[in-house]
Design a protein around this nucleic acid. Structure first.
Lengths: 221, 221, 221, 221
DNA sequence: GATGAATGAGGCTTCATTCAT
DNA sequence: CATGAATGAAGCCTCATTCAT
């Protein structure tokens, strides 16, 4: 199984009070809990209002602390979004890799990837929303260059599978794999803008709906 | 022919000094030209960096004037983006309406709408990019509520056509028209992120590529 | 005459509103006047309280404007102190060079340099004070590396002259020129801490007093 | 022998938990050791980066504890620097007094004072550096007014000796004792900026070098 | 003694906007 | 029309300090 390489720039000891020895037993876990809570709050806000439009004060207010206190947990506003995105990328890439590792035929692999992607829509709604809305802004920052590298890896997974499917006579030959990948990718992620779980169709249903259209089109054959 | 209702909040007298007639004849035309030039510069910047990340000074710098001077032409930064988006919406809706007015069969109508949309990718690249990236932020402002209304109108055009196509036995029956519309819509607009005219495939080619996939899927039949 | 190379990192168009064409005639001069006024106010404060302890609000208050308004004139707090120091360095180095250009014997050259230095105590009191008190902090910043380069140039002027004086049999042979230079230099500049013009002795008197001690010591011969 | 009056504002019970007696015997001594260690670390940092630029976290990091933990040892950041400076002042004044107590002739007394001062350059490098660089800032605080009083005392020691030397026909008559003192003082202390023990000349050598210049000047007689 | 979390004040800077000239 | 100066609100971040555990 191929190793997957997404890691945030500041993964590892992310707390500012990093240098000191730990005191009690479960304190690290507790600290981590607090952190994760804050990250989740921030993620919601970033998703709702956008990264730039969300102020650190918004986040702190939501957490019931002062904005300066956030800096006990994070180096910067950027490091928060970093954590959100890195966590999403790590999970999605592992899941993609797991599909590839099953060594199915290309059609089933693509279906698997599509299901993984749609499946992440609910648990990673906030991260995906940030990705969709603020990618343009975030990619301009050095700190997030690792995300671009990950995206390249992902693209290779899909494009290779699509190409194999064409060689195997499963997919139409007149499709550009890269173009097709991008369309599939964007169509899935952009659904985060309007998809609301609990609204008639769940993520699985959405995936199946999409697979039908993607594989066979909207025409009645 | 149905009337189309997109209008910017500040259409009409857009220049602040709008009421007072200036001396020479062509001065209004000249002013209008200058305005449009500024709008175009701003659109490029908004597309490149995002609405929020673009400062009025960025725009002024690009135009070779000081930021304060922009306010002789526009009421606010918002009014600039308003003009950009309203102009795009007006054109696309007219074009959509023109397709509908041809009264073709649903399949050809959908194809026509798709071609119109892809066709707007190049001339309205900046506006569409802003729409894609900053929609989440802009929709929160009262001033842009008219855009949401327009989007509802557009949705109706597509969904009605898709439904008719199903009834006419042209499109598969097991698809949700609204869901299908959204997927088509998103797939097209999101292409603005990576589509670059002059790069192998032009907008027309892209449209045909997509129509194939949309109608018949990626499977080899 | 040798050219002297001190220039601030951001010399040239220092105003933020740099890109635009200038309007009226004397406006540039007027703008420059305002700038210089602000720089002078800032210099006084930096000298009095130290660079770090002086807030931009302190400066703005002194000028009767809001702190944000300072940024219409300067890029940053650093750029203000830069301007102060660069201006001082430029003047002192020109003056030093002028002494060297007179090609006097080493003893008179040293005397000339000493007089120039003491002579700058009054007109450049603030800059020298900042130099003395905040050098340690400022030299840590890349932006001020040019000051270190200038200091090297100055050191060469003095050390060369002292060495020549030794060769010419004017100065004691058992002195380390570099060490001697540093002592002279520091003794002069550090006087800025207690020297107040109008208090009995002026800068010229101080220079003569120091020259006596420096050349012949405090012993009665 | 005259009593010397330097005492820090918070000398005496310096530990916050000072009143309560702890269990074991050596614990007080141990605590004191820990304290002194922390003070030394802080002194190094203050000297290197300046008092204001050094954060309590810098100090804590260096000590391998968290910044809040420093407050078990010290009341405040100020109290740390207080301890550093008070300790230096106490020692130097005792040493000065010891020279005076020897009742030598003025010339030898001055030589003795100079040697004492240069001799403190190495053991009290950090304190002297802080004094030189941060004096301007610290003197503005009430808590350090005792330092100014001490400086007055010191000035008296030197100026009196210089005056006696003039009366005794040892020193030139045309020098202002106060001015001369200041120059000598500044020349010595300021050497802390570039003096590095182990670099060719040690503190003693430096003292002798300076004594030559101070007594007889740089001229060859 | 130390940790970890938080406070509260304040620092530098940005930026859309206004307006007299 | 444009400039140049300023406003005022807000943004991100820092830091000495406190305190319950």
């Amino acid at each position: 199984m191929k190793r997957v390489t997404t890691t945030s720039a500041n993964s590892g000891s992310r707390t500012r009070a990093g240098g000191a020895r730990r005191g009690g037993r479960g304190s690290a876990a507790l600290a981590s809990q607090r952190r994760e809570h804050l990250v989740r709050l921030a993620a919601e806000l970033f998703a709702e209002k956008g990264f730039q439009a969300t102020t650190v004060r918004n986040i702190a207010d939501e957490a019931g602390i002062l904005s300066g206190s956030l800096y006990h947990h994070f180096d910067s506003k950027e490091s928060i979004v970093d954590e959100i995105l890195a966590s999403f990328f790590n999970e999605i890439m592992s899941a993609y890799q797991a599909v590839l590792d099953e060594s199915l035929n290309p059609r089933d692999t693509i279906a698997g990837l599509v299901r993984v992607a749609f499946g992440s829509l609910e648990p990673h709604r906030a991260a995906i929303t940030v990705m969709q809305n603020d990618w343009n802004y975030l990619r301009g920052m050095d700190r997030f260059s690792y995300l671009i590298k990950s995206e390249v890896e992902v693209e290779k997974m899909w494009v290779d599978t699509l190409s194999e499917g064409q060689k195997a006579g499963l997919f139409r030959d007149d499709l550009d794999p890269k173009l097709t990948y991008r369309m599939i990718r964007d169509t899935i992620w952009v659904a985060v803008r309007w998809f609301r779980p609990g609204g008639g169709l769940n993520a699985e249903g959405l995936a199946e709906h999409y697979l039908k259209v993607m594989f066979d089109g909207i025409n009645l054959h």
